[in-house]
C-alpha cells in the first residue's frame, strides 16, 4: 500500500494499533511474571492486589535464601560460557576449512552435521546417563559443558560458515600471496573480518546453552545443576510461593531476553541454516 496512494484509514490507524495490541499481548506473560515478582507471596494470589499493590524487593533479596539462586546461576554461567568458548574454538577452524578450502565432501559433511542436531535427545537418554555415570562424569560441570557444546556445535559451524562465505576468497588469496600461514589467515584476516558474525554466533550459542532444558535436567542432580533444573524442581508451588518463584524465574530469563533482542537477525540465519534470506 505504500506503492500507490491507496491509503485507507485502516492502514494509517488500524494496523499500527492492532500491531501494538498484538505486541503487548505477546509480551504480557513476561510483564506479568515481572510484576508478580514484586508482590509478596500472599499478595500475589489476591485479586484485590492484581494491579495495585505495595511493591517489594524481598523476593529478589531472598532468592539465595529461598532457592540458593546464585549457586544455580553460577552453574548456568559457567556451563554456558565454557560451552560457547569451546564451540567457537572447535567451530571456527572447522567453518574456516569448509568455507575456504572446500572439497567435494564439504556439502555432505555440513548436512551430516545438521542431521546430528535432528537426532531426538530422548533416544539416547539412557546411554548418555549410563556412559556419564560409568566414567564418573554424571552431574559434573565438565559433562554439561561437553554436551551443551556438542548439541550447539552444528548451529555454530553453520552460522560461522555462512558468515565466512561472505568474505571474498580474493582476500584470503591475497593473504596467501602476502605470506601468511594458515594460522595467520585465521588470526590476521578471518577473525578481524568476521568479528561481528562471530560475536553474534557466540551470543546465540550462549542463549541456547542457557535455555537448554533436557540434558541439563537429566544429567545433573545438585553439583552442576543449572537454572533450568532449579525452576523445573520448583515447578508447582500450589500458589504458595508465586511471588518468590516469579522473582527467581524473572532473574533466570531477564538477562537472556535482553541479550536476545540484540541478535534477532542472526537468529533467523542460525535457526534456518541460511535457507531463509
Amino acid at each position: 500500500m505504500a506503492i500507490v496512494a491507496t491509503t485507507t484509514k485502516f492502514s494509517v490507524y488500524g494496523r499500527p494499533v492492532l500491531a501494538w495490541i498484538v505486541g503487548l499481548l505477546f509480551f504480557f506473560p513476561i510483564f506479568w511474571l515481572v510484576l508478580t515478582s514484586f508482590k509478596t507471596d500472599a499478595d500475589a494470589v489476591k485479586p484485590e492486589f492484581l494491579l495495585f499493590f505495595t511493591p517489594t524487593l524481598d523476593n529478589y533479596l531472598n532468592m539465595t535464601e529461598n532457592y540458593d539462586y546464585w549457586r544455580f546461576a553460577t552453574n548456568s554461567i559457567i556451563t554456558s560460557v565454557f560451552a560457547t568458548i569451546f564451540a567457537l574454538a572447535v567451530g571456527i577452524p572447522s567453518a574456516y576449512a569448509m568455507a575456504f578450502n572446500p572439497s567435494r565432501a564439504t556439502k555432505d559433511v555440513l548436512m551430516w552435521m545438521l542431521s546430528t542436531k535432528m537426532l531426538p535427545a530422548a533416544a539416547v537418554l539412557y546411554p548418555m546417563t549410563f556412559i556419564t555415570k560409568s566414567i564418573g562424569l554424571f552431574d559434573t560441570h565438565f559433562m554439561v559443558i561437553v554436551v551443551l557444546m556438542l548439541i550447539n556445535l552444528p548451529i555454530v559451524i553453520w552460522m560461522l560458515f555462512t558468515y565466512f562465505k561472505e568474505i571474498p576468497k580474493d582476500i584470503i588469496e591475497a593473504g596467501q600471496m602476502d605470506g601468511v600461514n594458515t594460522w595467520g589467515e585465521v588470526k590476521e584476516i578471518l577473525i578481524p573480518l568476521a568479528w561481528g558474525g562471530i560475536a553474534s554466533t557466540a551470543l546465540l550459542c550462549f542463549i541456547f546453552c542457557w535455555n537448554e532444558a533436557y540434558w541439563t535436567v537429566r544429567l545433573t542432580t545438585t553439583e552442576a545443576a543449572t537454572l533450568s533444573k532449579l525452576i523445573e524442581g520448583n515447578r508447582a508451588p500450589e500458589g504458595l510461593f508465586f511471588g518468590r518463584l516469579s522473582a527467581v524465574s524473572a532473574a533466570a530469563v531477564g538477562p537472556i531476553v535482553v541479550l536476545g533482542w540484540f541478535c534477532q537477525k542472526q537468529l533467523v540465519q542460525g535457526l534456518t541454516f541460511g535457507a531463509v534470506k
Partner: peptide, 8 residues
Amino acid sequence: SPFFVMPA
C-alpha cells in the same frame, strides 16, 4: 521476547 524465555 517470548522466544528467549527458557522452557522451564
